[in-house]
Design a protein around this nucleic acid. Sequence first.
DNA 1: AGTCTACCCTTGCAAGACTAGGTATCGCGA
DNA 2: TCGCGATACCTAGTCTTGCAAGGGTAGACT
Lengths: 114, 114
Amino acid sequence: MGRETGGMLQGTLGLLILKALVGEELHGYGIVRWIRQVSGDALQIEEGSLYPALRRLEDRGLVTARWTLTDQKRRARFYSLTPAGRQHLHQDASTWLHFSRAVTLVLAAEPSVI
Amino acid sequence: MGRETGGMLQGTLGLLILKALVGEELHGYGIVRWIRQVSGDALQIEEGSLYPALRRLEDRGLVTARWTLTDQKRRARFYSLTPAGRQHLHQDASTWLHFSRAVTLVLAAEPSVI
DNA sequence: AGTCTACCCTTGCAAGACTAGGTATCGCGA
DNA sequence: TCGCGATACCTAGTCTTGCAAGGGTAGACT
């Protein structure tokens, strides 16, 4: 916030990544593309944020990765959710909704600024 | 996110503080109380987060402070919005809404987790 | 040969929130 | 009177996280 760059809010990136993987196995580039598309170009993940975040999720056992070839015969590291990751996703999504609703509630309090 | 402590998302705290001051002059303790009440007990600001955040807002010229006595004759530092702070508040609130809507949109994408 | 896209990665930094302490004063009940 | 909760302030240190700014490889198309 308060940044002109439109930077991510701390902690949300992991949640979005987990969400991206809930339906399909994706590689890093694909995750970025998926989030951008689904958000209607509102969320653009930087690669310098993505790969460290993926590493953290892997370290925590929330995703697993394997090297494979894409349809275009390029090497890529495909990530998928672990059971723990799936569980975390639901938990974090719920937490996020509660939190964002609470913030919106506060912003809407009189005198409203939204 | 992913924290069991329910920690604030980075950057949101400043926004909430600015919002708390839009209608009235408040001291730190009052800001915490106001946010907790208006959010329906959902948001509890830690004092260890609050005072550094207030300092940052002051350094950026978004709030000003003055020492006064409360109704109960206790010394307290009352904060109020500067014009720049008011402007920032509107800007940041708008950014936050766009961002949170985008995240919610992503979370609601099929297969939905919310 | 050059350029574009798809893909991967790291180092180092800065911002921000929390933990865990600390201080002081007031009012109230035991 | 003694303690305790509430009101009020503060800081040092730590951790997490996202980003900027760099790096690389390989295929495809011109």
